[in-house]
Computed example of a mutant assay.
Amino acid sequence: MTTGPDESRPEHQPGQQPEPTQPYGSVPPPPPPPPAPGQVPYGAPVAGAPYGAAPGAPYGIHPGTGIPYSDKSKIIAGILQILLPFGIGRFYIGDTRLGVIQLIVTLVTCGIGSLWPIIDGIIMLVTDSKDARGYVLRS
């Protein structure tokens, strides 16, 4: 029976780092890559931000899809589409291509094509529509 440290193990020398050990002699995983300059690492707390807030999503994250909320409101976009049926709501959310198409269809058909922006406005109000960047419109 021994009363002191095991003499068979090499002693740790000052100034040297002990070799990391893993179960069953496996090699430890490599460290994660450093974040880009000015970028906060994933999962790192942000000073002054409330719990659960992400720096890339200042308006929050949609709980069902995990997509950040847009800075645009779906109520304003839907009302603009319904009251000004020239694709104005699409211009508001940044989807200029579809806004121009709705404008041209409305003008070429002498107003009959304005049904499309009106229906599009109703769909914007009742669904989780997205803006031009792919973010979910806020309620």
Rank of each mutant, 00 (worst) to 15 (best):
G38I: 09
Q39A: 14
Q39D: 07
V40I: 12
V40K: 05
V40A: 12
V40M: 07
V40G: 00
V40S: 06
P41D: 01
P41V: 04
P41N: 01
Y42I: 04
Y42S: 12
Y42M: 04
G43F: 05
G43C: 02
A44Q: 15
A44P: 08
A44D: 09
P45Y: 04
P45L: 03
V46R: 09
V46Q: 11
A47I: 11
A47P: 14
G48M: 05
G48D: 06
G48Y: 06
A49Y: 12
P50F: 00
P50I: 00
Y51D: 10
Y51I: 12
Y51L: 09
G52L: 02
A53R: 14
A54I: 00
A54K: 15
P55C: 05
G56F: 03
G56R: 13
A57T: 13
A57L: 09
Y59D: 14
G60T: 05
I61D: 01
I61Q: 04
H62C: 08
P63R: 00
P63G: 02
P63F: 07
G64V: 03
G64N: 10
G64Q: 05
G64T: 06
G66C: 09
I67V: 15
P68K: 02
Y69R: 05
K72Q: 13
K72E: 03
S73G: 01
S73H: 10
S73E: 04
K74V: 06
K74S: 11
I75D: 12
I75E: 06
I75S: 13
I76A: 14
I76V: 14
A77R: 04
G78V: 01
I79F: 09
I79V: 13
L80A: 01
Q81A: 14
Q81C: 08
L83K: 00
L83N: 04
L83F: 10
L84C: 12
L84F: 14
P85K: 00
P85H: 00
F86Q: 04
F86S: 03
F86P: 14
G87P: 13
G87N: 09
I88C: 10
I88D: 12
I88F: 12
I88W: 10
R90P: 11
R90A: 15
F91T: 08
F91E: 02
F91Y: 10
F91G: 06
Y92D: 12
Y92I: 08
Y92M: 13
I93W: 00
I93A: 01
D95M: 03
D95F: 00
T96W: 07
T96V: 15
T96F: 08
R97I: 11
L98M: 12
I101C: 05
Q102H: 12
Q102C: 05
Q102P: 14
L103Q: 01
I104G: 08
V105R: 00
V105A: 03
V105H: 02
T106D: 08
L107P: 05
V108G: 07
V108S: 03
T109R: 02
T109N: 02
T109Y: 04
T109I: 12
C110D: 04
I112A: 15
I112R: 07
I112W: 09
G113T: 01
S114H: 02
S114I: 03
S114G: 11
L115E: 02
W116R: 01
W116C: 05
W116I: 15
W116E: 15
P117Y: 00
P117Q: 06
I119P: 11
I119C: 08
D120T: 05
D120L: 02
D120C: 06
G121R: 10
I122S: 02
I122W: 08
I123D: 08
I123G: 03
I123F: 14
